[in-house]
C-alpha cells in the first residue's frame, strides 16, 4: 500500500473543499472495495477523505411518493428497510444477493455505485489492463475470464460492472444526486452514471473529482411485478454470470456491460406485443461475445419477464 494522507470530513462542505484542494483524493465510505484495491496498489490515492461520518444515511419519503436514500445508508439498512422491501422488492433482493453480510453491513449506497470491476485481469497488477494502466492492453480479450461484456464494450476494455444493486436501481429509474465544491447539485439517472469504456476505460463514471454522491432517489415504483435473478456458480459471495431486474415493463441486465444495462430493445419489443422470448432476443441482436453467455441471458430474460407478468417476486 502506498502512503497516503487521511482526512476526516466534518461536513459535506468540508469534504468538498478537501477534494477540491487535493486532485488525487478519493472519498472513503465503507471502504469495502477501495481499501482492498489500495492494498493491491491498483488504487493509489494521495489522499483519502473519510466521508463515513457525514449525516447522509437517512432513508426518507419524497414529496412525489418515492424514496430518498442517503449515500451513506448501508446496504444492509437499505435492504432491510420495510418501505424498500414492500415497494421496491427488486432492490432489496438485488442488494441481498451481493457480497456477504459482513461487507453489506459496511458497504454504503454511494460506495456500492462506485465499486470497480472484478475482472480478474484488472485485479492482477501484473497483467496488462487498460482500465488499470491505460495503454497497457486488455488481457481479458483472448483471456480465460467469462465475465466479458456483451454490450457496450470497446476495443480497449470488455470489463463488466460488479454492482448488483445498480441493476435494480436502473430498472427503477433511480437518480443519483451529487454536489460539487462550487455548490452545484446535479441529478442523473443511475443508468448513465457509469461510462461505457470507449477509449478511456480507466474512467468509470462521469463524476468530477470533487463531486460527491449525496443520495439516490427512487420514483414511485412502476406497476406490475418485480423480479430479481442472479446467476452464479456458488450461492453467495461471487459476482453474477448474468443478472436481471424486471419491474413492470422495464428490464435491466447485470454483469453484461460496464454499466447496469437497461434493455431498451427488449422493453420496446414488449411494448410492441412481442413475446418474452422475442423481446429477449431483440436485445441480443446487438450483443457481442460467446454464444453460451447469450443463451444464458436469453433464457434468463425470457423466464424473468414471464415471471414478472405473473406478479412474481423471486
Amino acid at each position: 500500500m502506498k502512503p497516503f494522507a487521511f482526512e476526516r470530513a466534518r461536513n459535506v462542505d468540508h469534504a468538498l473543499s478537501l477534494a477540491a484542494a487535493a486532485p488525487g483524493a478519493r472519498f472513503l465510505a465503507g471502504g469495502t472495495n477501495l481499501l482492498d484495491l489500495m492494498k493491491l496498489e491498483i488504487e493509489q490515492p494521495d489522499t483519502l477523505i473519510d466521508v463515513g461520518r457525514l449525516p447522509l444515511a437517512d432513508i426518507s419519503e419524497t414529496a412525489g411518493g418515492g424514496l430518498r436514500i442517503g449515500a451513506l445508508a448501508t446496504n444492509t439498512l437499505v435492504a432491510s428497510d420495510p418501505r424498500v422491501r414492500s415497494r421496491y422488492p427488486v432492490l432489496a433482493r438485488a442488494i441481498l444477493s451481493g457480497s456477504c453480510v459482513q461487507l453489506r453491513n459496511k458497504a454504503s449506497m454511494g460506495g456500492n455505485l462506485m465499486q470497480r470491476t472484478r475482472c480478474a485481469y484488472f485485479m492482477d497488477p501484473a497483467m496488462p489492463c487498460n482500465k488499470r494502466l491505460p495503454g497497457s492492453g486488455c488481457s481479458a480479450m483472448g483471456g480465460l475470464s467469462q465475465a466479458i461484456a456483451l454490450f457496450g464494450a470497446s476495443e480497449f476494455c470488455v470489463a463488466v460492472s460488479a454492482s448488483d444493486m445498480s441493476v435494480a436501481l436502473a430498472v427503477l429509474d433511480a437518480e443519483v444526486e451529487t454536489v460539487r465544491a462550487d455548490g452545484s447539485v446535479r441529478r442523473r439517472p443511475v443508468e448513465t452514471l457509469h461510462r461505457l469504456p470507449g477509449d478511456a476505460p480507466q474512467v468509470d463514471t462521469d463524476l468530477a473529482p470533487d463531486e460527491l454522491i449525496l443520495a439516490v432517489e427512487l420514483p414511485p415504483p412502476p406497476s406490475g411485478g418485480q423480479v430479481w435473478r442472479k446467476v452464479r456458480a456458488r450461492a453467495s459471495y461471487v459476482g453474477a454470470l448474468a443478472s436481471i431486474a424486471v419491474a413492470g415493463d422495464r428490464v435491466a441486465l447485470g454483469a453484461v456491460a460496464a454499466r447496469p444495462w437497461r434493455a431498451r430493445a427488449t422493453e420496446a419489443a414488449l411494448a410492441g406485443g412481442a413475446s418474452p422470448r422475442e423481446a429477449a432476443e431483440a436485445e441480443l441482436v446487438s450483443a457481442s461475445g460467446a454464444d453460451g453467455r447469450k443463451s444464458l441471458v436469453r433464457r434468463l430474460a425470457t423466464d424473468a419477464i414471464q415471471e414478472s407478468r405473473k406478479g412474481g417476486r423471486s
Partner: peptide, 22 residues
C-alpha cells in the same frame, strides 16, 4: 493463462470454494 503462465484466480472472491449458503 496460456499467454502468461499465471493463474486466473488469485483471491477467495475468484477461486470459488463453497460458502455457507452452498
Amino acid at each position: 493463462d496460456p499467454r502468461y503462465g499465471s493463474f486466473l484466480n488469485q483471491d477467495l472472491g475468484g477461486y470459488l470454494a463453497p460458502v455457507h449458503a452452498d
